[in-house]
Amino acid sequence: MKRIATVSLAGCFGCHMSLLDIDERIIDLMKLVEFDRTPLNDLKSFTRRCDIGLIEGSCCNEENVATLREFRRQCDTLVGVGQCAIMGGLPVMRNAIMHSDDPLLECLEEAYLNSRLVYNPTNDMPNDPALPLLLDKVYICSQVVKIDYVIPGCPPSGDLLWSVLTALINGTPITTPPGGVKYD
């Protein structure tokens, strides 16, 4: 039986929601695989090595990087799921900030101090030691570790996830379901 792990880095969990869109096929999936670390069962660390790791989201902060590297170490095959994992998605818009020499600071100040909608009487920016440090820019998964396969979409449809997953589990060629691939 194949072992699967999943994680959401800088993503919205939409791809995980989409995985639930496979509906009753989840019962068939449970017969094929055993879930290791995944938010679906709230397991926070790996219990043992996995065959397939599904990555949602890109890397915004150091914790994302550490998690992604851990997945690379623990999984034989890494699959980038959704546009964030593949090319940065919405988080990567941060990389287009260009009006100052310090885009990261500009981004934080816009979010917590300067934006018209901000109410922040103490002018503090969140800086608890428990908060992971942000990266200078958003890195897509394949810039940090080697990614083996991708499933495009925002999110990929349940049908597409099902086709790709079953193909990877069974070692058969991937076929695109009707309706095909969509990037949004």
């Binding site: 980038g80 546009q83 593949i86 090319m87 940065g88 998605g89 919405l90 990567v92 818009m93 394949s142 080697k146 990614i147 083996d148 396969y149 991708v150 499933i151 495009p152 925002c154 790709v164 991937i174 695109t176 095909g180 691939v181 969509k182 990037y183 949004d184």
Partner: peptide, 26 residues
């Protein structure tokens, strides 16, 4: 960034992407 682009769904580049998509990581 297709998910945030107003042209999504009528974008020819996107349509070509869909047409030639493969699942191997690029």
């Amino acid at each position: 960034l297709c998910p945030i682009c107003e042209a999504s769904g009528r974008c020819e580049l996107q349509a070509m992407g869909h047409r030639f998509e493969t699942f191997e990581a690029d």
